[in-house]
């Protein structure tokens, strides 16, 4: 048996159709991949914008819950009164000066404690403001 007859008898037509399909599918996939390659390169170039590759920005940690003794609470209330006499936002070293001349006990470390607790916060332009929520949380 020779020729077309032999091909038909040994599933040659089916095998050739499968073969052609495999090669054709491969070529289609290859051409699709090549046509999308610019997208992949764009993605790689801008990988820093992709969230999963972004380095987590160092977040300023929330001020730790500092212990506020009755003395410190009283000091916070005194500072609050002084702040009320000032503009908003206010000058931090003016506040320190007022605390000193008002005779507050250990004004420097008390002020430092309020800053660490987030009760006094910077406006990042050189002035500071009084955070009432933090004050209520710690010292009210």
């Amino acid at each position: 048996m020779y020729g077309l007859e032999s091909i038909a008898a040994n599933n040659g037509w089916a095998i050739s159709v499968v073969g052609v399909s495999i090669v054709f599918s491969g070529l289609v996939l290859l051409s699709l991949s090549i046509s999308r390659i610019h997208k992949v390169l764009d993605l790689w170039d801008n990988r820093n914008d992709i969230r999963i590759f972004c380095k987590k920005p160092q977040e300023r940690s929330e001020p730790a819950l500092l212990p506020f003794t009755e003395k410190k609470k009283a000091s916070a209330r005194q500072f609050r009164l002084l702040v009320k006499t000032m503009d908003d936002p206010f000058s931090l070293h003016r506040l320190l000066h007022l605390a000193e001349i008002s005779g507050l006990e250990r004004p420097h470390s008390s002020l430092c404690h309020l800053i660490k607790a987030g009760i006094i916060e910077p406006d990042h332009q050189g002035d500071y403001f009084f955070n009432r929520e933090a004050f209520d949380r710690y010292a009210s």
């Binding site: 931090l92 070293h93 800053i115 910077p122 332009q125 050189g126 002035d127």
Partner: peptide
């Protein structure tokens, strides 16, 4: 520690 830098015009910055 913590330092306060007192500047002109009442501006300040705290370094900690």
């Amino acid at each position: 520690g913590t330092l306060l830098i007192a500047m002109d015009d009442g501006k300040s910055v705290v370094m900690d």
